[in-house]
Design a protein around this nucleic acid. Structure first.
Length: 344
DNA sequence: CAATGTGTTGAC
DNA sequence: TCAACACATTGG
């Protein structure tokens, strides 16, 4: 009904930012919640008819002592809901104005918590929802909850995980398959490099002209949440794109053999996190057991956690309860810092 | 009936 | 754009 169905984003752009920069606005003046006070407004009390105006932008008093929040868009008011506390209404306005007019819009409070990581997370959250959705959250007072939930999801750098039979994938961050390559003998040999088929390289890992020969460092995360850093560059001599420095370590640790398949993925979310995985030709995932890799091992908070290959059935046996493996993964999610393998 | 939020107006 | 204000509409 409210019909704030303005399509989405990009309508504002340019004109938005600039102008402000400085968090002008009246200072949030103490947190005096209810009491109207203000002796100079004796008339107000006496009249008992006029409503106290708000110190905050976008906040209007309600007859019942509560506070409404509103923002204007295209000559029309967009109602953001009613709130018990004046500052809650002000915060709702802040959220809305940032979605409607960009990150640098004038707000009541925001300029204060000018973090970096949190701020960007909220920014991506805002931009991943339509104006109408944000308004709806504000009116229902669910914005903060949804934002927090979003943060949890985006911070969980989860990798796909199989139950040993390739059937049980736990919830995974949305990611797209970029491409796979069956490694050649030279890819896993002494040349210490992986040739990336030109077709895929140019499509998914475009190199800037300046970096063509110099190369760049690409970060990939594997199923164990280890981060691998490979030098990626173009070899004029062979007219091919290659992963060089760092690649041999991967080959060694994974015991990659000719004919195995390496696959590359990228998260579809705002972060363009890259992932790398591998499997044997027969393709039973990477939980297959090679002599050198009898079990999967996670390292969590400095503790090695082993999981037998045949977790099949174990998870399922938990009947509704969270499975052991799930707990492990949940723990991994919380592990903020990722282990850097092969620091170059 | 009380609360909500729209209609509307005038100031900036 | 914005808030003030009146009041129609909602919802329990």
């Amino acid at each position: 009904m409210m019909d704030a169905s303005s399509t989405d984003d990009l309508s504002t752009t340019t004109e938005t930012a600039s102008t402000v920069a400085a968090p002008v606005n009246t200072p949030p003046a103490i947190g005096s919640g209810g009491s109207v006070v203000l002796d100079l407004e004796v008339g107000v009390e006496a009249e008992s008819r006029k409503l106290p105006s708000s110190r905050f932008k976008g906040v209007v008093p309600q007859p019942n002592g509560r506070w409404g929040a509103q923002i204007y868009e295209k000559h029309q008011r967009v109602w953001l809901g009613t709130f018990n506390e004046e500052h809650e209404a002000a915060k709702a306005y802040d959220t809305a104005v940032q979605r409607f007019r960009g990150r640098d819009a004038v707000t009541n409070f925001k300029p204060l918590p000018a973090d970096t990581e949190e701020a960007s997370l909220e920014a991506s959250f805002l931009n991943s929802h339509s104006k109408a959705e944000i308004v709806d959250m504000l009116r229902k007072h669910t914005y903060n909850d949804e934002l927090e939930q979003s943060k949890r999801n985006s911070s969980s750098r989860k990798t796909l995980f199989t139950d040993g039979f390739g059937s049980g994938q736990l919830s995974v961050n949305a990611r797209e398959q970029l491409f796979e390559k069956t490694v050649t003998p030279s890819d896993v040999g002494k040349l210490n490099r992986l040739v990336i088929p030109k077709q895929h390289a140019e499509k998914h890992f475009p190199l800037q002209i300046g970096n063509t020969s110099k190369g760049v460092l690409l970060h990939f995360e594997d199923v164990g949440m280890k981060v691998w850093r490979f030098r990626y560059s173009y070899w004029n001599s062979s007219q091919s794109y290659v992963l060089t420095k760092g690649w041999s370590r991967f080959v060694k640790e994974k015991n990659l053999q000719a004919g195995d398949i390496v696959s590359f993925q990228r998260s579809t979310g705002p972060d363009k996190q890259l992932y790398i995985d591998w499997k044997t030709k027969t393709g039973s995932g990477n939980t297959n057991s090679r002599p050198t890799q009898p079990v999967q091992m996670f390292r969590l908070f400095g503790v090695d956690i082993f999981s037998a290959n045949n977790t099949h059935g174990v998870d399922r046996a938990c009947n509704g309860k969270r499975s052991n493996m799930e707990m492990v993964l949940l723990g991994l999610e919380r592990c903020k810092k990722q282990k850097i393998v092969d620091p170059l």
